[in-house]
Design a protein around this nucleic acid. Sequence first.
DNA 1: AAGATTGACATGTTTAAACAAGTTTGCTAT
DNA 2: ATAGCAAACTTGTTTAAACATGTCAATCTT
Lengths: 244, 244
Amino acid sequence: MPKAKYDQIYRDLKRKIEEEIFAYQELLPSENTLVEEYQCSRNTIRRAIASLVRDGYVQTMQGKGVRNIFQPLEQASFTIGGIESFRESAQRNHKKGYTKVLCFVELTADEKISHRTGFPVGSELYYIQRLHYLDDKPLILNHNYFLKEVTPGLTAEIASQSIYEYLEHTLHVTIVNSKRTMTVEKMTEIDEKYLDMDALEYNCLAVVSSQTFDSNGIMFEYTQSRHRPDYFRFQDNAVRRGTI
Amino acid sequence: MPKAKYDQIYRDLKRKIEEEIFAYQELLPSENTLVEEYQCSRNTIRRAIASLVRDGYVQTMQGKGVRNIFQPLEQASFTIGGIESFRESAQRNHKKGYTKVLCFVELTADEKISHRTGFPVGSELYYIQRLHYLDDKPLILNHNYFLKEVTPGLTAEIASQSIYEYLEHTLHVTIVNSKRTMTVEKMTEIDEKYLDMDALEYNCLAVVSSQTFDSNGIMFEYTQSRHRPDYFRFQDNAVRRGTI
DNA sequence: AAGATTGACATGTTTAAACAAGTTTGCTAT
DNA sequence: ATAGCAAACTTGTTTAAACATGTCAATCTT
């Protein structure tokens, strides 16, 4: 599937790091060595390495080399990060997940919705409320707004499976960019009703709001995901400017 | 200060986007046009644009152009994202911030600390507990562990000012990479004591744990930041693989 | 009028080369 | 023995060129 050479090299190096073929704190082979190994130009190697840096897998040091700083982390809980659908995340964590559609309506963005979501007033939208289960526990309450113009033909049936699969494979909408904001919010009655939080004494949720853009640079989705706090974990890697 | 050409172009384009010299949803000038404008090669332009993509400022579209998708966001609350110290964040948000040191001790990592922080057992550490105030409100309770070997001479006095300024300007330690994990945790008695949370009925905190690496790829800091939820906001931009 | 083709132009990938700048190593002159 | 230096590495920046691939509009064909 990945046809670009730099992407193949990136994946191969990433695998070797994850499988500890390169040890923690060890230096990777030099760029020129990798050029010979992969039979490509130095630029292509550097591009693959830049991706590993961005992932927090390695650290480059001018004059010295490229150090492996990857440490496998406990996957105790459900982890997000990157652009990934609930189904993909569930699969990656080897859990069985399913989705219940609580509400599926069409509506037009008024002033209030526009301000909250970023869609222009008057936009024709699908509004979907969904509950995501992982190992039979309701973990995420999702409020989705999709721009009808970009995502025509959406149904409750599709929403109970994977909306993203429908978008990508049927409508050929490609997701390119997603701006996310994470906050902590007081739990509402609706949250309490759907997420089994009685026994636990949390009164807050982790809330992830995201605006998603398609390949035309059009924002076609606004989603608010309300996560049970005991199963929420977000990973991130920040790199000093200049490396990418 | 930024001497690299691609970095200057990146900053200039970023500024033009922020000042809305390029309108939202407008296409930027084509790469070849920018090549003439900035008198550089196409690769250098492409590198600058790649940085803007990573920031979520623009979106590239093969065959079409580069679209500005930047929208100024409400900075109502304290925002983190990127590698930035508390002092820098406060300054960027035009708030006056100060820091109170609650505890400053030296200790050696035992099994328990090692497991929590990722430092090897036996590491000589500074452990610092700090409270960050913004506009006279205590917002963040910080637990810092610094590797003594990399950060010698740290004092409570320095900790009450800016540790990062000391590291960068006095010790010339450059921070390169920071792995962060965000979770939501139940509030403890200590949290309650220091963060004025009585009136509000939150019983949770936003917790950011981070491991920070220096330019030698050595992890020299582990920090757990416990944020008052009503002032916590984390921004992020996820990009589909292949763009960087 | 509708459909197909072509050419101009956009970004995406890859190579090659040169030079800059930081680190390490080992030799040399003292 | 050691301080200093130079050579041989390392990654970082920039240019130039070629070709691939996607988009769009004008034009040609039917």
